[in-house]
Every structure is written in C-alpha cells, then in structure tokens.
Amino acid sequence: MSTLLEIEKEILSDFELFDTWEEKYHYIIELGQKLGPLEDKYKIEEYKIKGCQSSVWLNGEERDGKLFFSADSDSTFVKGEIALLMMVLSGQTAEDVLEAKLEFIDALGLRQHIAVTRANGLASMIKQMKTYAFAMSSANK
C-alpha cells in the first residue's frame, strides 16, 4: 500500500495532463461514474451529509487495522470528488487519515470551481472521514 503522500503525488501527476477546467471536469465525472456502489442500508439519514445542491452518503469501516470508505451521491461530480478522497484515504490507518493535510486538493486547481457551490461540501466530506478515523482510533486505544 502506498503512503498517503505518494498517492497524492500520483493524482497530481495525472492532473498535470489536463490544461483546462473542461478536461478536469470530465476526469472527475469519469471517477464518479466508476465509483463502486454503496450498499442500500447506508443510504439513510444517519450516513447522509446534506448539502444545498447534492447529498452524500458515506460509510467508514475498519478492516485489518485499516479504515475503508464507501460512499454515494446524487451528483456524479461529487462522487468523483469522493473518489479522489477515497483514493488517498481509504485503506490507510486511522492515524494517517487523522493527520492527512490533503494539500493536493489545492494543487488540483479545482477550488475556484468547487468553492462556489458552497454546499458541494468537500470540507464536510473530509470532516466526516476524519470523524470515522477519530472514532476508530479512540476505540482502539
């Protein structure tokens, strides 16, 4: 398993191929379309991160000392964003997830497009992922 920073670097080098917002948009939509399904039992209020323009359902669970996420959204673009976060954070230890600075997000050059949809909720998704990590790390102490 690559470290979190290594994966971030890989994503960034993928993104370097894209010059335009249009190319980045298509890439993220593709990631969203490929994101694995979320079991229906998690598509309930308890797992929901509500936004103004889209909803996200997120579950995190521990397997072999690592934290794994699964998620869904009614927006394919938001699913693509989750997929990016999951590439980096899913399969890492709770401690690594908690400490992740996720500086690659700024380097993607997406902020201007996603910041405007304030309820797009990238920040809420990260917070929720870290909450799972915190719960897992607290339970193991």
């Binding site: 335009t20 917002w21 249009e22 948009y25 939509i29 103004c52 323009q53 889209s54 009614d74 927006s75 394919t76 673009f77 938001v78 497009h113 949809t117 797009n120």
Partner: peptide
C-alpha cells in the same frame, strides 16, 4: 441528471446558468 452536474458541464463550455433551489 443532477442539476449541479449539468450546470458545471455548461460552465466548462462558457455558459452561465444557475442550479439549485
């Protein structure tokens, strides 16, 4: 089709619409 996804697609083409409530 999610409205925001479509709105962002149009944005990549330089077309400004509004999506949401």
């Amino acid at each position: 089709v999610n409205a925001m996804d479509a709105g962002m697609f149009l944005d990549t083409k330089g077309i400004a619409v509004r999506t949401g409530y």
